[in-house]
């Protein structure tokens, strides 16, 4: 776009500021218990003020109320919008952006204010206005403009009951990401999470590479034969930087352990027990105890390790009760 074209475009879109998206509209359904219950069930919101008449009557609310965050629900178009979206002023504005190359759209944030509780029988009227369009912004997604709409909600008495501000970014997608910004792989399925792997550098890559081949090695000083783990570049006993390694038999004993309850991380299988294990060779290693119930693990327990594939990407030593 030349500077002149850009100015013409910006004048055109800024002319939309202040325009109403559509005339004030009454919601298709008045506030009602059935929709409240469905919403509460779907959201997993167990607040009895929404669904338990007896409780609600005795509470400070004095009766059933709608969850405040349902405010926008009462004015929504419903399923028809999925195949036949309304051609309103907002759509028209988005089309102007699309025609000028700002085809990407991303809902960035929304904020709501609730002035009073809505109760079954209340009507909800919504009136949406295009409130602001930003200057051109360079975002991580690409160059674009933020569009802010404001919806004011009123009731059957024309009293204000709430307000919602909604912001979207209309942008020209950077080459590196598409408009949806997803990181799906080729088959459209997101990858299953795996354990957080160690990065591999000069001093540890050889150790993890050996694990990938099913072996647990212990670094050994070539000069004084002292074993050390985790690996490091110099022997703390004699300061030699010459080293080789031996393969552990993975016979060990639990020195300490903990069962990890919370938080649970994606890619890990619970119950999950981590332990400090003293190996027969004399060094220690951190690993998991598997093959028994967490409550059966104890300090002093004899264990035997083997290298296993624990997920799609990860080979790891795992320790089992020794007999």
């Amino acid at each position: 776009m030349t500077p002149e074209e850009r100015k013409a475009f910006e004048d055109k879109v800024h002319a939309y500021v202040g325009r109403e998206v559509n005339a004030p509209q009454k919601g298709k359904d008045d506030v009602n218990k059935a929709m409240i219950r469905h919403w509460a069930e779907v959201m997993g919101d167990e607040n009895p003020a929404y669904t338990d008449e007896e409780y609600a009557a005795k509470s400070s609310k004095g009766g059933i109320i709608a969850p405040p965050s349902m405010l926008q629900i009462w004015s929504m178009e419903g399923y028809p919008m999925a195949h036949n979206p309304s051609q309103d002023v907002q759509r028209e504005l988005h089309n102007v952006f699309d025609e000028h190359g700002f085809a990407g759209v991303l809902g960035t944030n929304t904020s709501a204010e609730y002035y009073r509780d809505l109760r079954p029988g209340d009507e909800v009227h919504a009136h949406t206005v295009i409130d602001k369009i930003s200057e051109q912004k360079a975002t991580q997604r690409g160059i674009g403009y933020f569009i802010e709409t404001v919806t004011n909600f009123t009731d059957q008495n024309d009293e204000a009951v709430g307000k919602i501000i909604f912001r979207v970014l209309k942008f020209t997608p950077n080459d590196s990401n598409d408009a949806t910004g997803g990181d799906d792989s080729d088959d459209g399925m997101p990858e299953a999470p795996t354990r957080i792997a160690s990065p591999r550098g000069h001093d540890n890559k050889w150790w993890w590479d050996a694990v990938d081949e099913g072996k647990v090695l212990i670094q050994r000083c070539k000069s004084c034969q002292t074993l050390r783990h985790p690996p490091r570049p110099m022997c703390g006993e004699c300061q030699s930087i010459e080293w080789d390694s031996i393969e552990s038999t993975l016979d060990g004993e639990v020195f300490s352990f903990t069962e990890l309850h919370y938080p649970k991380f994606p890619g890990y299988q619970y119950p999950l027990v981590c332990a400090v294990i003293s190996l027969g060779e004399g060094t220690r290693i951190i690993s998991n105890i598997v093959g028994c119930e967490p409550e059966d693990v104890y300090i002093g327990m004899k264990v035997k390790g083997k290298v296993e594939q624990v997920d799609e990407k990860t080979m790891l030593p795992q320790f089992y009760p020794a007999d």
């Binding site: 354990r195 957080i196 792997a197 160690s198 990065p199 550098g201 001093d203 540890n204 985790p230 020195f255 300490s256 352990f257 903990t258 990890l260 938080p263 991380f265 890990y268 999950l272 981590c274 400090v276 951190i286 690993s287 998991n288 300090i299 990860t314 790891l316």
Partner: peptide, 25 residues
């Protein structure tokens, strides 16, 4: 990251888990 790499694959990821290991002992 190399240091924590000796612990993260096993799930020993949080301050609580590190302290728990000492305290169990």
């Amino acid at each position: 990251a190399i240091h924590y790499g000796w612990y993260t694959p096993y799930g020993l990821l949080t301050p609580t888990s590190w302290v728990a290991m000492y305290h169990k002992r």
